[in-house]
Computed example of a mutant assay.
Amino acid sequence: MTAESRALKAATLPPVSVLAPRLVLGITVATAILWPSLYDPVMSAVYNFLSKSALYRFSGFETLQTVVCYAAIEVYYTVKFTQSPSRRIDVRGPRSTASRCRRSKFGPNNPRWPRMRRPSRRVSEILTYVTPLLILDFTLIKKYADVSVADIRQSGGYGSIGADGGISGSFLRPTVHNFTLASPLQFWRALPTHAPSSRRLVTELVLSLLIYDALFFFIHVAFHRVPVLAGFHKPHHRHGEINPQVTNQLSVAERLSLVLLANFALNIIKSHVLTRSAFIVVFVYLLVEVHSGLDLDWGYDKVLPTGWGAGARKHAMHHRDGDVGFAPFFCWWDLGLDLLDSILVRVS
Rank of each mutant, 00 (worst) to 15 (best):
L185H: 04
S148K: 02
A253Q: 13
E125M: 10
L185I: 15
H224G: 05
V147D: 03
L185A: 09
R200P: 03
N243G: 08
T180V: 01
L185M: 11
S183Q: 10
S183Y: 09
P174F: 05
L127T: 05
N248V: 13
S197R: 04
A195F: 00
E204P: 11
P184N: 04
I161K: 15
W188E: 11
Y158I: 06
L215I: 13
D164R: 07
P174R: 01
D213H: 06
E125W: 09
A145F: 08
Y212Q: 11
I152G: 04
R238S: 15
V176G: 07
S251H: 10
V226S: 08
E125F: 08
F223Q: 12
E241Y: 11
H220S: 04
T139D: 09
F179V: 05
S160F: 10
K143H: 09
I161C: 08
G157C: 01
D164M: 03
R225H: 15
T131A: 13
T193M: 13
P174I: 03
T203W: 03
L201V: 00
P192Q: 03
I242A: 10
T128A: 11
V147L: 03
Q245F: 06
F216G: 03
L215R: 05
D151R: 11
Q154N: 15
I135H: 09
T247I: 08
I141Q: 05
L133Y: 07
S155E: 05
I161H: 15
S197V: 04
T180M: 00
G157R: 02
S183F: 07
L205V: 01
E241W: 13
